[in-house]
Design a protein around this nucleic acid. Sequence first.
DNA 1: TCAAAAGTGTTAATTTTACACCCATGT
DNA 2: ACATGGGTGTAAAATTAACACTTTTGA
Lengths: 251, 251
Amino acid sequence: MTRTSTQPHSPADATRVAVSTVIFTLRRLPGSDSLQVVLPLVRRTRDPHEGQWALPGGWLDIAESLDAAASRTLAETTGLAPSYLEQLYAFGAVDRSPTRVVSIVYWALLRADEITGDAASEDANAPGPAIEPAPAIENVQWFDAAALPELAFDHNEIVGYALWRLRNKVGYSRIAHGLLAEEFTLADLREVYEAILGRQLDPANFRRQVENSGTLIPTDRFRTGSHRPARLYRYNQDVELADRGPLDSRD
Amino acid sequence: MTRTSTQPHSPADATRVAVSTVIFTLRRLPGSDSLQVVLPLVRRTRDPHEGQWALPGGWLDIAESLDAAASRTLAETTGLAPSYLEQLYAFGAVDRSPTRVVSIVYWALLRADEITGDAASEDANAPGPAIEPAPAIENVQWFDAAALPELAFDHNEIVGYALWRLRNKVGYSRIAHGLLAEEFTLADLREVYEAILGRQLDPANFRRQVENSGTLIPTDRFRTGSHRPARLYRYNQDVELADRGPLDSRD
DNA sequence: TCAAAAGTGTTAATTTTACACCCATGT
DNA sequence: ACATGGGTGTAAAATTAACACTTTTGA
C-alpha cells in the first residue's frame, strides 16, 4: 500500500489502526449480458502477504477522522473517489496480522462512469482526467466479486461480509443511487437491483414498488434509442440515501 | 475507569484504541407497571469529563481481541457479564477526546436475573456472588434509557444509535433471547418486545407470528400463579440468535 | 362465580406475486 | 409491420391487523 501519512511507525508493542475499504461497482463483463459486481484490489508490495491481492487501505493519521482516512487511502491506492461510503466493521483479532493491527473497514459504491484514469487500468477505457492527487497507481486490478482469488489477511471474509451488507441494504434503502448516474430509467435501476441480488425481478412489480416508495422523481425527459423511449427518473433528495451509521453524524 | 491492562500509555502523538459497551437490560421501574430499557453508566474519576457519567469501557490490550476487550472492560468496570455482545460502531472523530482515541463500541444485552453483586448497587437487590475478578465496583448506576443525563464525550449519541440498533434488530432476529431466562411465557416475550419497541402488541397476533417463525419450542411445563397457567417456551437453538457481524466469525 | 390472562377463530385490509396485455419506437 | 422493451391492468396468494370469543385458573 502507498503510505504518505505523517504518523510515525508505532513501536512494536503498540496497536496500530489501519483503514481499508471494499469498493463495489457494476460492470458488464465480457461474455455476460448482465451486470456483475466487481471490486478493485491492490497487489501488496510489502512483506505480510507480499504479492497477494488485498483491499485498498492504509494507516490512520493522527489528525484525521476514520471517514477521512478511508477516503484518503482509497484515493492514494486506487485513485478512486466513491459516491457512497459507509463503515462496515472493525476487525481486531490478535492474529490477523504479524503485528497488532486493528482495521476499520469501510465499504463504498462507485458509479460506473466514475472509474477514470489510474484505476481504469486493466481495462481498455479511454483514460479520463486523473483524480486530484494524481498518483500513478499501478497494481490495481478489478475482480468479479463472485470469483475472488485467495486474498491477503482475512480479506476474503471481509469482502463476503460487505457483499452481505450490500445485498441486505439494497432491500430497504436507496443504496442503488450510489451506482447510478443522476438520471436513469427504471430498467437501469432494476438492472442494478438484479445484479446485487443475483436474481431476476418482475419489471411490472418492480416499477410499482419503487414508484410507491416515493424515492423517485420522474423527469420529463426520456431515453431514446432502442425501442419505446423510457422515462428518466432522478432520486428524491429529500429522502435519506441510507442510514450511514450513528445519526449520519459520522464519527 | 479501572485499568488493569498491561498496555503502556502510548506517546501523546499516537492513536489509542478504547473499547466501550452499551449494556441494555429491562427493569420494572417504580411507578410503572411496564418494563423499561435501562443501562449502567460509570462515573468518570479522571480528567476528561471527570464526574460525568460515561459508558463502561477501557483500553484495548495489545494481546486481546476487540470482543475480549469489550468483555473484560465490562467486567472490570461494572462486574457484569452480558448474555449477548455485538459490535456497534467504531467512533474516530479527531475531536471527540482531548487526546486521539478511536473507540470501538459494543452493545450488549443482560438478562434481568444476571444483575448481581457489584453492579446491583443503587438497587436493593440481595447481593449475589461477585463476578470473577471480584472488583468492588462503585460509581456504577442504572439509568432509564429514555431519560439520560448529559454524558461524557459523544456517549449520548452512541446510546441513541445503540437503541436504534436494538429496536431494529428485535424485528428480524431472536435478540429478545438475550433478555429472557431459559424458559418463558409468550407474555414474557411480548413484554420484552413491547418494552423495546415502546408500543403495545396484539397478544393474539403476536402469538401466531412467533409460533410461525419456528424459533420457539413449546415445553410441557406451565407457569402457574395468577390466572390461567401459561405454557413455557424455550428458544430453538438451531436458529441463530442474530447476525453478530462477519459470519459470526467475530474478529 | 367472577375477574383476568391464556389461547382460538374470523374477517377485512394490505402487500406480494404472477402474468396477460396494450403502447411506442427504431429498424 | 414487427420485434422489443416500456408501461398498465387484474387477480390470486400471502401477510398483517383488528377484534370477538372461548378456556382455565385463583381468589
